[in-house]
Amino acid sequence: MATPIVELRGVTKSFGPVDVLKGVDFTAEAGRVTALVGDNGAGKSTLIKGLAGVQPYDGGEVLFEGDAVSLHHPRDAAHLGIEVVYQDLALCDNLDIVQNMFLGREELAVGTFDEGRMEAEAARALQTLSVKTVKSLRQKVASLSGGQRQTVAIARSVVKQAKVVILDEPTAALGVAQTAQVLDLVRRLADSGVAVVIISHNLQDVFAVADDISVLYLGTMTARIEAKRTNPNDVVGYITGTKRMTEVQA
């Protein structure tokens, strides 16, 4: 098996007396969708915040493409190419699609915006993801549907040439058709060589898109398994703690 892009070894994190992560191992591989599931309070958010550099881990090792790295600031994560697409999307309604996709990393030429270049790159990113649902790149985000907004948020990570994209509940607020579209998009994102981590409570979505499933239960990784080698019933068992998997990786 190839070297994972991101590998966590025995990471720990406590808030005061509460141990939220008790030595968690986790990997995300290029071209694969890894679902991170677990009940509320299992430590999913804490694990992600550590990867995003928002809340550094207390202990353990983070390997990026095989090298030990430190993630102590969102900048560290961005520098490595780790992008988080948050649940509440974090788009600016009053800006258009291109402006949102390049927010914080605008292309400049002679000190001013190179709008043409940004627009062309945005179009390329959306084409990579085979997005055909957006009428104009200069549409304000306010006029987009939930699925389209999610699309823009995901495409932003493509523009940034992210190597690891973490999606926090990307389908939570979407209808059936839009959910299918977004899951499609997640698949294509992975197919383009990105390591995708998807957090979801919806096991139907997880099984529809994920290659690997990692289950957190009360701060420990209770299962890591290929999606096609398990089934929703077992995964529910892992999530609720009634089932436990000792065998790690196939």
Binding site: A122, A123, V131, K132, V134, K135, S136, L137, R138, S145
Partner: peptide, 21 residues
């Protein structure tokens, strides 16, 4: 908009036309 995907994107903003479709 998202349902009628596949159709050519003809509608264009006045300051920047779409690159899509």
């Amino acid at each position: 908009a998202d349902i009628e995907s596949g159709g050519p994107a003809i509608e264009v903003a006045n300051d920047a036309p779409s690159l899509l479709g």
